[in-house]
Design a protein around this nucleic acid. Structure first.
Length: 286
DNA sequence: AGTCAAACCTGGGCGC
DNA sequence: TGCGCCCAGGTTTGAC
């Protein structure tokens, strides 16, 4: 049997490109399907409503579309409901067109009427879901304060300029805050800053117009490259092995502590900035 | 307003 | 071999 199972988003640390790839994959797999039931093996990921209400609400809902905002995945359901998912760090969504045995980290199994399943799998149990109607959307924590989508029109150079100029926090911290740009995590923040040639410790209001322009361009570039790289890896159907892409080839600084910079040869440094591990080249980033 | 630490959680890497 | 410790990671919360 082919297409037996598909790991949709099987890689750690899902940021915007990973969530976007999951969105595209799910679009091909579950639109039009009707949810028969959901089994909760660990209910802690359900943030709203109560697990009992979550189960009863989701039954008989039809999947009408898949959306994304920052790192939040939206499953648009019938009756104006949205299943909103944040995978946090280790969350995965696994699709199978047959019944699939849950393992110790499978916390929820959505069963569709025609026999396929969507498993929510999360080793560290940080991932969360909300099932809300339009009046309850404000219950989804973190959603309101999201900045513009970096790959859409709202993320203008002018917007980033204003955000930087009025901020005294470190630029790395600003990128991670979700308010300057939605969907950037630690990996893409480090990669964007490297590409822009900006030291992650710099305060936002010290960046020149030229640096902000570089950063604006770099943020979009690395996210687009990320989508391209992940797109090839995840759309492959696998038989349980969870084939992954060549993400490593894409990274210039992240995870390369003490390895030579590809541009200048100096070793890539790693240090905590604003509480996050940050990788950078002190020669290429000023 | 900012920064920082703690909390959430568990597997993996380390030293001994 | 195995124990104990510490760490990573995104986000929220609370303290200064």
């Amino acid at each position: 049997m082919i297409n037996k199972q598909s790991i949709v988003g099987g890689i750690f640390l899902p940021e915007l490109p990973e969530v976007e790839t999951i969105r595209r994959d799910l679009e091909k797999l579950i639109i039009g399907k009707v949810i028969k039931d959901v089994k909760l093996h660990y209910a802690g990921f359900v943030k709203y409503p109560t697990p009992t209400d979550f189960v009863s609400r989701v039954k008989d809902k039809k999947v009408q579309g898949i959306g994304r905002r920052g790192k939040y995945l939206f499953i648009h359901l019938s009756d104006q409901y949205n299943l909103i998912i944040h995978l946090r760090m280790t969350g995965r969504i696994i699709y199978s067109n047959t019944k699939l045995l849950p393992d110790k980290h499978t916390h929820g199994v959505f069963q569709f009427k025609e026999g396929s399943e969507l498993h929510f799998h999360d080793v560290r149990k940080f991932g969360t879901m909300w099932l809300v109607n339009s009046e309850e959307i404000s219950f989804v924590s973190g959603l309101k304060m999201l900045g513009p989508e970096p790959l859409e029109k709202g993320f203008t150079l002018e917007f980033l300029t204003v955000i930087c100029k009025k901020s005294r926090s470190k630029i790395k911290s600003l990128l991670l805050s979700q308010k300057a740009v939605a969907g950037i995590g630690n990996i893409y923040a480090d990669e964007a800053l490297f590409r822009a040639g900006v030291d992650p410790s710099r305060e936002g209001n010290t960046l020149t117009d030229r640096e902000i322009n570089n950063l604006w361009e770099s943020v979009r570039f690395v996210l687009e490259e990320g989508i391209k790289a992940r797109g090839t890896s995840i759309s492959d159907y696998v038989d349980g092995s969870g084939k992954q892409g060549d993400f490593q080839n894409f990274l210039k600084v992240y995870g390369r502590k003490n390895e030579p910079c590809y541009v200048c040869g100096k070793v890539v440094l790693r240090k905590k900035i604003a509480g996050r591990s940050s990788h950078f080249c002190s020669e290429c980033q000023r």
